[in-house]
Every structure is written in C-alpha cells, then in structure tokens.
Amino acid sequence: MGALTTRRAGALLLSPLLVCYAVAFIAPIVLLFITSFVVGRGYYQPGTSLTTEHYVHVFTDSFYQKVLLNTLAMGVYTTCLTLLLGYPLAYHHARASSKTKGLLTILVISPMFVSLVVRGYAWSIMLSDHGVVNNLLMWFGIINEPVRLLNTMKAVVVGMVNVMLPFMVLPISSAVESINPHIEESAYVLGAGKLYTFFKVIFPLSLPGVIAGTVMTFAITMSSFVMPALLGGPGFQVFGTIIYNRILLISNWPVGAAMAFILVAIVVLVMYFQERLLSVLTKRRRLT
C-alpha cells in the first residue's frame, strides 16, 4: 500500500463521523453563536439582522451581574469543598489493595449512573425542614429547631459536591497511584513525618490530577442547572437556571444564547490556564 492510499483511506474512514459532527456539533454551535446576536427574541433565521446588545445587556444589567457573581460563588465553593473532601478519599482509593479497589471504584462512580433529577430529588427530601438532616441535627442536640437548608446556597453546594466527588476523586487517585510508593517510604526512612511527607512529597507530585479534577469540577458546576433548580428554589439564580428560564419558559433565545457563550468563554479560559499551569509545572520538574 502506498502512502497515498492510506491517506485516502484515513479521510474515507473519518467521513461518517465528520458528517455527524457537522450536524450535531458544528451546526449547533455556529447557529447558537449567531443567535446570540439576533435582534429581538427569536432564534436565528436567514435574513434577520444582528446586534451585540444582548452581550452588552448581560454584562451591564445589575441583575445579570448578580447572577454571574452567584454562579462564580457556587463554582468556587463547590470546587474548594470537593477538593478538600475528595483528596483524602482519592488517596485512600489509590493506595487500596487491587481487590478492594474494584469495589471502591464501584462505590465512587455508581451515583454517576443515576439521573441528576433523581439525585437532586433525594437531596431535596433530605434537606427539607423535617428531613433527615434536620432531624439528625436535632437528635444530636446541635440545633433546637429545624434550620432552613433547602432553597439556600448551602443546599445547592452540598448537592453539587455530592455530584462532583467522582470527577475529583478519580483523576487525583490515578495521579497518586502513579507516584512510586518507594518515594513515600524513603521520605519516612529519612525521618520525615506523615504530614511533612504529604505536603512536601505526595501532594506536589499529584498536582496534575488535582488540576484536572478541579477544572472539571469547576466547569461542570458553573453550567449546572438541575441541582440549583431543585435545591436552590425559585430565588436562587445562576447562569444555568437563567438560561433554562430564558429559553424554555419565556422563549427569549438571544439572551439565553449569549449567556451560554459567556459560560463557554469562562470554561475555555479556565482550561487555558490549566494548560499553562501544567506546562509550567512539568518544566519546573524537569529543571530540578
């Protein structure tokens, strides 16, 4: 076989997938992008005139600014908590014997296979005024009367942390797994304490996994709308819920589209910094 035929074969083999992506990936993104500039409230149709007013509106209107801040707060709280809670779990998962690891992996990822609606509903049952959480807190005597958990940012963050834990635990676990256990042992042999070894040896070496998990968590949380809608209540507004509202309830397509693209821009920006951070880290490691 000559080089030319293999090259042709490559193009031929890729063409069905390329067609699929043209219809289901590229066309939607292009149409959505144009729609975010359309005058009025409809989606893009040939012949409609274009404007940037929707972006200006979203960036200057105080309502949308508040929504953006709320979304960022939800993303940051969720990501930090997931990292703090998930890291020890990931370490345990990485260092488990291969037999128990199978079972633990099932435990960690099994909720991912159940629809978000179901998990959100479960949390709304648990966090309601007379739900399990309030009852337990009263039983332990921590509080005397039910505290309002549902329809607050707290409830949303708890639900989101629950959803995002697998996305944080698995990349960190595989990063920790790839650290040779002998490195850890030599640190102990040389007299380093457990905490010292952790902060000076293990954590720095697992940073690629930490960054991957953090970025994934932040990106998914920023664009989520099922958990915020089910646990945050009608007063809790983030980008996801507002986009849902603008498109499906009051069918104002351009504003929804503009907000969706702002989300994409934030995610792309964060991923760009991840890429830069990773390359700086690997370069530094090569130097030392």
Partner: peptide, 26 residues
C-alpha cells in the same frame, strides 16, 4: 481532530442542548 471529537466532554452540555434545538428547528 481527536481533540475536536472529544471536546463535547468538556463543553457545557447546556450549549449543545440549545444549539441542537435551534438546528433541529432549522
């Protein structure tokens, strides 16, 4: 191409939801 084909994993799904709705209407 590989990056392009795998990118729907990281792009917010809500973007595809709305975009595909517009495409299908078209």
């Amino acid at each position: 191409l590989r990056t392009l084909f795998l990118s729907p994993i990281v792009i917010p799904m809500i973007v595809f939801g709305i975009g595909i709705a517009i495409t299908l209407q078209t």
